[in-house]
Design a protein around this nucleic acid. Structure first.
Lengths: 213, 213
DNA sequence: AAGCAATCTGAGCAATCGGTCAAACTGTTT
DNA sequence: AAACAGTTTGACCGATTGCTCAGATTGCTT
């Protein structure tokens, strides 16, 4: 008899609660991604999560708070994919390539989360302000690394802050504006974007931009 | 007595109507930019335009139709700033630099219009589908020009479609995510983004990316 | 079987939503 | 001054918004 299988009532209850909260978060992400904070309805979120409206309100205290919780959750997911987190900072080309790939991959795996985040930032980021400092810290650390590359003449001179935001902009674009890309490339309904080609092209863009290719 | 000053009643009426419609469009752009289609309220649009709600509904037939009209209007504004429209297609560096500057300038002048457009594209662009063909045509024409540069070995090989979308992504980013940029660069409330520096940095990014710098 | 906390439910709250309508009010033309 | 199209108004429609609450129901512990 394995220990983790022996769950008493309390544990099962907490387990269930956790699953429901998870479902609510996912439902909220989908709804917020499509309608925005103002346009989202708790009714619709409840439906997506397979709950009734009063049931949903039993688990959350308000729409705004749910929105904030979702943003914090997405922000945490994000933290792992910053330039600074790419292991060996002595090989600029590898770091940039990895970062681009990771960010594109992330957007592909969490398109709605990506959209919620973008919309919030575009709207002014008021609900995020308390949590932005960690993002800025990561960006600052990466800026230092990039600057050190410039100083050592490993790469051509670039503005280390803007350089990062340009990578952010391009990679984010593939997550948030899939519709535009699909239309421009005239992809049929079943067809998928050739992500290997995209990773190639985007990597090349930024590698050339700092003289590495 | 100059002719255009001699306006009869009918002309004055049409004039007035035009101004009100213009005010409504601007109000709608601001509201849609902040709340999205679902979140925008006709009440609020009316208020922004200095009208009462029934008064607004006298001029528009529905919220959705107003939204569509706004999108078409923005789409028309946009048409002028496509790569293909930059005069001399024989000097790639000049064309790219001009395009980047124009697009950044446009975003700076019409930030809310820019945001409405972006949000709509991110949401799937369903309300735009009838009008996208013109954008795709312009992009296709530009893609041909870029490809011809590659063929003549004026620039390093790039995917002409993705290359354009990358420029779109970066320039759009400055219009739509001003909050992020302001926070990252730690700008105080009064401070303005140094757009000359941005134009420089973005131009350099794409010029280097095709071996022109 | 009784007790208990956690959960679920239907009914309903005030407020707002998009939109309508008849009646009053404009300013201009006869 | 009468007639007129164009415009504005307040009252109002049914539907939906975020959210609450008392009471019924559930599943676990004693």
């Amino acid at each position: 008899m394995a220990a983790p299988e022996k769950k008493n009532g309390r544990e099962r209850m907490l387990d269930r609660r956790k699953k429901i909260r998870e479902a609510i978060r996912q439902a909220a992400i989908d709804e917020f991604a499509q309608k925005g904070l103002a346009g989202a309805s708790t009714q619709s979120i409840a439906q997506r999560a397979g709950l009734t409206k009063p049931q949903l309100h039993y688990y959350i205290s308000s729409k705004e708070e749910l929105y904030e919780e979702v943003l914090v959750h997405i922000n945490e997911l994000w933290r792992d994919i910053f330039i600074a987190s790419s292991g060996d900072s002595k090989d600029p080309a590898k770091v940039i390539r990895d970062y681009v790939r990771n960010k594109l991959e992330f957007g592909r795996r969490h398109p709605n989360a990506s959209r919620v985040f973008s919309n919030e930032v575009a709207a002014g980021g008021h609900y995020l302000q308390k949590h932005w400092h960690s993002a800025r810290e990561a960006t600052r650390a990466a800026a230092e690394i990039i600057q050190s590359w410039v100083d050592k003449k490993l790469i051509k001179p670039v503005d280390p802050w803007l350089f990062q935001m340009h990578i952010w902009a391009v990679t984010q674009h593939y997550a948030d504006y899939e519709a535009q890309i699909r239309f421009m490339l005239q992809l049929k309904d079943g067809e998928e974007i050739d992500m290997d080609h995209v990773v190639d092209e985007v990597s090349t863009l930024f590698l050339r931009a700092c003289g590495l290719k």
